[in-house]
Design a protein around this nucleic acid. Structure first.
Length: 254
DNA sequence: ATGGCATAATCCTTATGA
């Protein structure tokens, strides 16, 4: 089973990219973030002809998550229990016996900002939910735009902001991983300076000035079955690209 | 401290992103 995550920065703008990418990369599950459209505006017509089911949880202008799956989804989840939140940032479902949780983690704006505090609270609520939920599924994969660079090697050397790397953010991610989840990307040898996001400004992509914040986490049983994980930076070279690249993991489930 | 670039909506100006 192949599972991919991609922050598309508006699905209506990027539908043709998604379509083209899926033709080249026929993954079983594609998790999208920042779809930026309400459910009634989901661009189904632009995705027609693809052999995928679409499941979505959107809102106007901001946030929004979606799943494109070759098989039907079961047990769809669109919020963190106990967190009353207008923002559409989470979409969970079981596909072919694998629990997939698709996240668009709060950005946080800057360390100390109210949005940063909201980010930490959001992560803590997610962690509490996973304490309950992790044990309910044998194969559990959490993917998405975490807006956290796990380690210093996941940011360009002269990264000047504390956001995405601060200890409380990393502690939030670590607390989730301590429930038994592992960053699939680091199970394998990877090129130095591997990133998944590059600013549109200042030729950041050309200079490879970026961060790795788009992650695929797997519980022990899924991680053992994972035999590859890579970032596909090619779509970042396309005309009018998303600022994020897709990340793909392959699982060899018996 | 700000801009730089992109997106959506309130649409020629603002909020947000990372």
């Amino acid at each position: 089973m192949k599972i991919a995550t991609w922050n598309v920065n508006s699905l209506r703008k990027r539908a043709s990219h998604v379509r083209y990418w899926l033709d080249e990369n026929p993954v079983d599950v594609l998790c999208l973030q920042e779809t930026k459209c309400q459910n009634q505006d989901f661009p189904l017509e632009d995705l027609q002809g693809l052999e995928y089911y679409a499941t979505f949880c959107g809102q106007k202008a901001y946030n929004g998550v979606a799943l494109l799956t070759r098989k039907p989804v079961e047990d769809v989840q669109t919020s963190i229990p106990g967190l009353e939140d207008e923002e559409r940032r989470i979409l969970g479902a079981t596909i072919d016996g694998v629990r997939v949780l698709n996240l668009y983690v709060v950005n946080g704006k800057e360390v100390g900002d109210p949005k940063y505090r909201h980010k930490l609270k959001w992560l803590s609520k997610l962690q509490q939910h996973l304490e309950d939920d992790a044990g309910r599924h044998e194969r559990y994969v959490i993917v998405g735009d975490f807006n956290i660079a796990p380690e210093d090697r996941d940011l360009s050397e002269d990264w000047d902001s504390e956001l995405l790397r601060s200890e409380p953010e990393r502690e939030g991610l670590r607390a989730i991983c301590q429930l038994g989840f592992e960053d699939c990307f680091r199970r394998f040898e990877q090129p130095a300076e591997s990133y998944s996001w590059w600013d549109y400004r200042n030729s950041a992509f050309r200079r490879n000035f970026g961060v790795r914040i788009d992650l695929i986490l797997a519980n022990a049983q899924a991680a053992e079955a994972c035999n590859s994980c890579r970032i596909d930076s090619k779509p970042r070279t396309w005309e009018a690209p998303s600022d994020h690249a897709p990340v793909v993991a392959t699982f060899d489930f018996a």
